[in-house]
Design a protein around this nucleic acid. Structure first.
Lengths: 236, 236
DNA sequence: CGGCTTGTTGATCCCCGTCAATGCCGGTGG
DNA sequence: CCACCGGCATTGACGGGGATCAACAAGCCG
């Protein structure tokens, strides 16, 4: 286990509140796992034996609907975790997980964790905290879907992705536009049109690279009432 | 504390996995609280000191958006709980809670619970289980919003509300249609039209009383591909 | 009775999904 | 080296679902 990965684990959402000594002891039972882009980690319905922390890359969580299509529940990257619920309760995974890019995940047996929880209340509180955070994210997501247009949701996504919080910036999109669209609950065509709308607000895209003239303009857009229709500006 | 309320607490989502002796000891520190319809329990931003279990009635959880309107996050009834996250983490409530009907809630100080968690791992596991369940509900809700029409969401709501699982039935709507609409993420006008659509599938409404000819017909509707437009049938 | 709230209905608009055509890019094989 | 091809992104045309605005009916309570 490299020092760098240790740092990632220590600052992960799941483990950030766990005392260091306890954590170091916990993760001796885990193992690193590499995933090639497109590789499946587990599928919906599998018996849940492990929980995971993303060390690098991006992984996609999706649910298979009866109608056949699958909908994207979340896309996680470095420091985020998944599978805690199913694994600790000894159930089955409610989602399918696959790598959206070449990725590395850290895998911990649920049995070890749940034993540790029983003997260490701090760990229990830390796990509760992590779950509550997940919970809060979901509530925000519901709020987002119910009250925003596609362009506003895209703006939210970009703001979260930006390396700074104010002024101009430029960064790369982490994965395919198709997956971004699914993550935002829309079709690729709508994503394209949303980008076109944002062009009028100082957002340009060139081959997976985004440039934002002013992040505050974007933030204002998110909270704005559905503004008057704006003309999309043609590509390039 | 009446025997009846004790039963409700013991079978509540939050406490159902907690050993009886421990639970009985826990709730000696709590208190019952009556809410008149429309009364506010706490508002978004309040310091979170207690968590709550609904003993009777219906309470509404909503979030105030910057744009002024508030959106309904959830509506809870007997046996459901809220405020665990904020209270245990010592934060502030992220939502406003008010009674949608005359209601009774059970109020437990977070300090007592978190002390109990530290000394009793079973309680920790039970709380984790409750939170995970809550989590799963939220995921289902997201799935519901993303993939269903207004009429399908209404059908889901009615099926969950029905006192039986098959065949015909009749029951009362628990609260205002306006709130039902908000709960389902739509406007009152749309709810009205959704009811009109369901009339063709054996659903009639008369002053807050719903009659369903066949619940299985409704369930089939929920999973159906977006069927061909059906003519709404006029009211009465 | 007359105001007030709540629910229904109609007309219209806008966002987004669908279907289809085109353009851009990377990879493959002659 | 370049022609060809398949996948992804963009753009246009069209339709449907729900929001909005407005009118109206039905209870409720003074």
């Amino acid at each position: 286990m490299k020092q760098y990965d240790l740092e990632t684990l220590r600052s992960s959402v799941l483990f950030q509140d766990v005392p260091l000594v306890l954590l170091d002891q916990l993760i001796t039972h885990g193992s690193k796992r590499r995933l090639a882009r497109g590789e499946t980690l587990f599928v919906q319905g599998d018996k849940a034996l492990c929980l995971y922390v993303v060390l690098d890359g991006w992984v996609k969580l999706s649910r298979l609907k009866q109608s056949g299509e699958d909908i994207v529940v979340a896309v996680y990257t470095k420091g985020e975790s998944f599978g805690e619920a199913a694994a600790l309760m000894g159930g089955i995974y409610p989602v399918t997980v696959e790598a959206a890019e070449d990725s590395i995940v850290y895998q911990v047996s649920a049995k070890n964790i749940s034993e540790a929880i029983r003997t260490n209340p701090d760990l229990a509180m830390a796990m509760l905290a992590a779950t509550f955070r997940h919970n809060h994210e979901l509530v925000l997501e519901i709020e987002d879907i119910k009250g925003h247009t596609a362009a506003q949701r895209l703006a939210t996504f970009l703001v979260a992705l930006a390396p700074v919080t104010h002024g101009p910036c430029s960064f790369a999109l982490p994965y395919d536009k198709g997956l971004i669209a699914a993550r935002l609950g829309m079709k690729p065509e709508s994503l394209s049109r949303s980008f076109a709308n944002l062009r009028a607000n100082g957002v340009t895209v060139q081959r997976g690279n985004v440039t934002v003239n002013d992040l505050d303009t974007l933030k204002a857009l998110i909270n704005a009432e559905r503004g008057p229709k704006q003309k999309p500006i043609p590509h390039t």
